[in-house]
Nucleic acid binder design. Structure first.
Lengths: 116, 116
DNA sequence: AAGCGTAATATACCGTTATGCATAACGCTG
DNA sequence: CAGCGTTATGCATAACGGTATATTACGCTT
């Protein structure tokens, strides 16, 4: 019988690389979702304790690498402006989430099978 | 038909966590192998352009977390001392390599299926 | 006993990455 | 038309991980 020691577990990370390096990762996707919920980059950043600067850089990186923008933003106006999640952005979230769920299953299975 | 865009690829990393955090990872396992080949931590570190300090810390971390040491070392003596890969160490390498190969297959399959 | 190359350990340095702060532009609202 | 909150951007600073360097201990070899 295969021994199972819960003291050892397989862990990992997955992300999607694009033309410039990292395109989508877990944090980036959460950011996309939060922007969709809050309607602005700054509120999304606050909600996940991330600096606005960093959040903006991530959005910029994703938009540059996507075929079409995942987030569109407006400056000035009602509430000072804001940001919106596009259909392309929703699809990106779905695609990454699917790969991520799949990986989580892989992780769990391989953790069970660890024979150390 | 599902679109395949080679511009996007799924990447990832896997490692095995132990009581203190990371126990085995790709770099750690290569280090174990090199120690087995060279017979010393310092030669192994040199062979992979890693500082001896870092290599020693990694070996120490692995030995602390393993049920039995993966590397045993002697200080002084012929050649100044050295380090040897134990049977436990060989097993650790095999276990990690297997999980790693499996993950590489996962990566390739998921990269093919990316629909972005 | 001296010399050698290694293990073992402390400390200072450096480079990358994220944070913090400061500023300008923007356009609706009162 | 002044005020507001946001986007957008630059620059200084802090945090962290690994590197580089230096020192001591060790025990066989000569």
């Amino acid at each position: 019988m295969t021994r199972r020691d819960p003291a050892y577990r397989l862990h990992g990370r997955v992300w999607i690389d694009g033309p410039e390096g990292t395109f989508l990762g877990f944090g980036r996707v959460v950011l996309l979702e939060r922007i969709g919920e809050h309607g602005s980059i700054s509120a999304a950043a606050r909600s996940m304790n991330m600096s606005y600067r960093h959040a903006w850089d991530l959005v910029d990186s994703m938009n540059r690498q996507a075929k079409r923008p995942l987030i569109v933003s407006t400056t000035g106006g009602k509430g000072g402006g804001g940001a919106r999640l596009t259909a392309e952005g929703k699809k990106a979230i779905a695609v990454f989430r699917a790969a991520w769920e799949d990986f989580k299953a892989f992780e769990a299975r391989r953790s069970r099978d660890l024979d150390l």
